[in-house]
Design a protein around this nucleic acid. Structure first.
Length: 554
RNA sequence: GUCCCAGUAGCUCAGCAGGAUAGAGCAACAGCCUUCUAAGCUGUGGGUCGCAGGUUCGAAUCCUGCCUGGGACGCCA
């Protein structure tokens, strides 16, 4: 249940009927009533700009309209304590604090469910993310996409969407052939031969490792085998090795998928030719290749589907893949892509439309670059040079909690500077510790209470929570379900991180201002313990959403 | 040349389906531990919201142009 939202809905309805009763507008004319939480506490708990919006319709001065509304408003029905008209015509509402009394019991009752809503209306949404080619290690940029996608899914799930997480495996096509050739070269090198890497080869350490491993397992067996057969085997071997490593790294990063979709299955099940049949009206032959007229759908140039040599471009199976996704009946499919793929969006949008699907179902989240800093200097990362900073390295260096926190703390379309030293530091500079410390602090207090024989059951008198810091905490706690729903609806998981930080700040501030355990005021102690339990639950649920641990002791 | 993202305090970033005096952290400065963990708290200073127009009662937020930084513009993936 969402206590705050209920209060808000009630208020909106009351305002609307006041507007109608004051004959300022008819029911059809009234714009959506917008209630905002003013930044400044002196502007009340909620404010609305409805009087300004009605100025044109009612043909009156906004402040006069505001007066009329206030005169018609049934205050007690909406639990309003006080109303003020301010500025150009804002109506500020100061709510009775009694609704706050419901917050703690709600949280204690809902426990791990607190924060969940049905805002998403059970809509089916699929999020495809990471989908890294199985040709090398996951690096920084992938990790950011992984963290973003994972938290987005968590948030969507909590907001009542039916979420499916999918990883698209590029296990067909050129890059996999290159993998086989690279493995071959490293294998032969491991046997002591002087062989050059292929031009488009993968130079990562991992391929060297595969070469050595093959050498240990098979000796020179594959060197004397016919090349075609050798490459076929190396392809499968390399694929399995790389994919295994990716899956393992992701698991350690606390990222799991509901399905791993193989590009090869598209070939096997003729999905590509099926898709091409549908696109046929938009296809034409030129220069010995087959083109897709994406310009019909706003792309800046047409795209090749079938190359001169008869093979598909990368786009072609990807179109079939997206057709397959949409055929599965999702209300929305979300793709999380690195910023270097943003130019790919127009042609995929064209494909969606060419396939006959509404383009609104297709959404892409672009993840901007990550710049890594250590000792004040920028570290380069490049898969080709083999000097990539791998996710694995990062997890070992700074820990999963810090990496995940930093990666979801920022909006996906801002570039991110990741400071290794800061993420590693166990100091108050580090927001991860700051938030976790709030949780640990509460755990300590509750243990303390128990050891002093103070019962921590759920009976308490909410009316004893009247200190300013207590009211602030209660209001913040009440916002949580809306924060989650908002993060889900706007695809902005970083709002959860922000909320966590704010809640932790209020907790620390409260902690320094008020004493929780006080043998001389047992009733107040019990009320504060209940408050602490509610904060603990909310912190824990929020941390769970971003996939960061909640330590009981630090 | 075209397209995408960013430009907000010294630094890193929120805020951007228009709203009141633009926020946070770090850094700087000044305080707070005989009291539940000082990995904390309290306070002070710090801004032409890249620039210029436009729309509006009202613009950091919307529109246009320009500037700067990053990225993308393959019959690569």
């Amino acid at each position: 249940m969402n206590v705050l939202a209920q209060t808000e809905d009630k208020l909106k309805q009351t305002i609307e009927s006041a507007v109608i009763q004051a004959e300022l507008a008819t029911k059809e004319e009234i714009p959506d009533i917008i209630l905002e939480k003013p930044k400044d506490k002196s502007h009340g708990d909620f404010a609305t700009n409805i009087a300004m919006q009605l100025a044109r319709i009612a043909r009156k001065a906004p402040r006069q309209i505001a007066d009329d509304i206030v005169n018609q408003l049934n205050q007690s029905e909406a639990s309003v304590e006080k109303i003020e008209i301010a500025g150009p015509g804002f109506i500020n509402f100061f709510m009775k604090d009694d609704f706050l009394g419901e917050i703690i019991p709600t949280i204690l009752k809902e426990d791990t469910e607190y924060g969940k809503t049905n805002a998403g209306d059970r809509k089916r949404i699929q999020v495809e993310f990471v989908s890294v080619n199985p040709t090398g290690d996951l690096h920084l940029g992938h990790a950011r996409g992984a963290a973003f996608g994972d938290v987005l899914c968590n948030v969507l799930d909590a907001a009542g969407y039916q979420v499916e997480r999918e990883y698209y495996i590029n296990d067909a096509g050129n890059q996999i052939d290159n993998l086989a050739l690279s493995v071959e070269a490293r294998y032969l090198q491991a046997l002591g031969n002087d062989v050059d890497m292929p031009e488009d080869g993968y130079h990562g350490e991992d391929i060297i490792e595969i070469g050595k491993q093959l050498c240990v397992e098979y000796g020179d067996q594959w060197a004397v085998t016919e090349r075609e057969e050798r490459l076929k085997f190396f392809k499968e071997y390399g694929l399995k090795y790389e994919l295994g490593k990716i899956e393992q790294d992701l698991a350690e990063f606390r990222v799991h998928f509901d399905s791993w979709f193989s590009e090869r299955s598209l070939y096997k099940e003729n999905k590509i030719t099926d898709a091409l049949k549908v696109l046929d009206p938009y296809m034409y032959e030129k220069d010995g290749a087959t083109w897709f007229r994406t310009t019909d759908f706003g792309d800046d140039k047409d795209r090749v589907l079938i190359k001169q040599d008869g093979s598909y471009t990368y786009l072609t199976p990807d179109i079939a893949y997206h057709k397959n996704k949409l055929d599965r009946g999702f209300d929305q499919i979300v793709n999380v892509w690195g910023s270097d793929h943003h130019g790919y969006i127009p042609r995929m949008r064209a494909a969606i439309q060419g396939l006959g699907y509404p383009v609104e179902k297709f959404d892409v989240k672009i993840i901007q670059m990550v710049n890594l800093f250590e000792n004040g200097e920028k570290l380069r990362m490049s898969k080709r040079t083999g000097k990539a900073v791998a996710l694995r390295e990062l997890m070992e260096e700074v820990g999963v909690d810090a990496v995940r926190y930093y990666f979801v703390a920022r909006s996906n379309d801002s570039q991110l500077d990741f400071d290794m030293d800061l993420a590693r530091s166990q100091s108050n500079d580090n927001p991860v510790f700051y938030v976790q410390y709030a949780y640990a602090r509460i755990c300590t207090m509750l243990k303390q209470a128990e050891s002093k024989g103070i019962s921590v059951d759920n009976s308490f008198d909410a009316s004893l929570l009247t200190a300013e810091k207590e009211i602030d905490l209660l209001k913040k706690l009440g916002e949580f379900p809306q924060v989650v729903a908002d993060a889900a609806g706007k695809h902005t998981p970083h709002k959860v991180t922000q909320y966590l930080y704010d809640l932790a700040t209020l907790l620390h501030s409260f902690y320094n201002a008020e004493k929780v355990i006080d043998a001389d005021h047992l009733d107040r102690t019990k009320a504060r313990i209940a408050l602490m339990k509610a904060v603990r639950i909310t912190l824990s649920n929020a941390l769970q959403l971003i996939g960061v641990t909640a330590p009981e002791k630090m």
